[in-house]
Design a protein around this nucleic acid. Sequence first.
DNA 1: TCTTGACCCTCCCCTCCGGGGAAGGTCCAC
DNA 2: GTGGACCTTCCCCGGAGGGGAGGGTCAAGA
Lengths: 129, 129
Amino acid sequence: MRIGEAAAAVGMTVKALRFYEERGLLPAVRRTRSGYREYSAETVNRLEFIQRSKNAGFSLAQTQEILRIRDTGNSPCSHVRDELGVQLAHLDQQIAELTALRTAVAEHYQAIATVEPADCDPGRICSYL
Amino acid sequence: MRIGEAAAAVGMTVKALRFYEERGLLPAVRRTRSGYREYSAETVNRLEFIQRSKNAGFSLAQTQEILRIRDTGNSPCSHVRDELGVQLAHLDQQIAELTALRTAVAEHYQAIATVEPADCDPGRICSYL
DNA sequence: TCTTGACCCTCCCCTCCGGGGAAGGTCCAC
DNA sequence: GTGGACCTTCCCCGGAGGGGAGGGTCAAGA
């Protein structure tokens, strides 16, 4: 199948498929005589895995490493488990940071809602930040 | 004061100060005869506002708009209030998305911790994603 | 006076994950 | 044969700067 059909099949864009190939997540894709890419069922399978890996929050670099391990003939499962652990810790930190930021923003919002803007000191640009 | 001193005074990097100037958040900075930037107290004041605006989660574009309003001679406070409201909604959405992702990742992590990696199907790359 | 080290300058490439679009070739149905 | 959909490569764009090359400047000590 051609790139547009493959992209639609896995819910990605044509741009993304070319990008993954360029970045080495896909092996060099077969071409027709006129230069069009031809995607095999196996490559589509690989794209589906990339999609699942993305859904798990992995970066392309992490996904690429998992694929590399599998391509070497090994099972990437223990590596995936480790990465998921790191990912969990990372997510917890991100959520904590965003939550703290949300609290700070909410406080600013409260403050600005209860005070007259006219009292703002120009030298401070905006008194509520 | 020179760029390094100004950067240290407001807790930013030298790179950041040059970047803000290039992007128009700072008016053209005065130069010495040899071309070194010279920061006035007023400019340092402006940098401190930029820092506070960053801490409130505003992007440089949003900060720039606030500065533009103040430079026009108006009070940016009502604009800031609107932006803070948008920011709150945006943060809530981000937190919700990250929390959902965290749940999904935790489920993967549980699943992979309870099943033998040896059972993994190579055709699926990694059975746990 | 000379040197040394810290500081400064501009310029260019890099991040992450593609999106947007230009210029041009190919395929298929009507 | 022609129109439109599809494909190709190539290049620039974002946010917020970081890293480094190559070279100029400043102040203190020998």
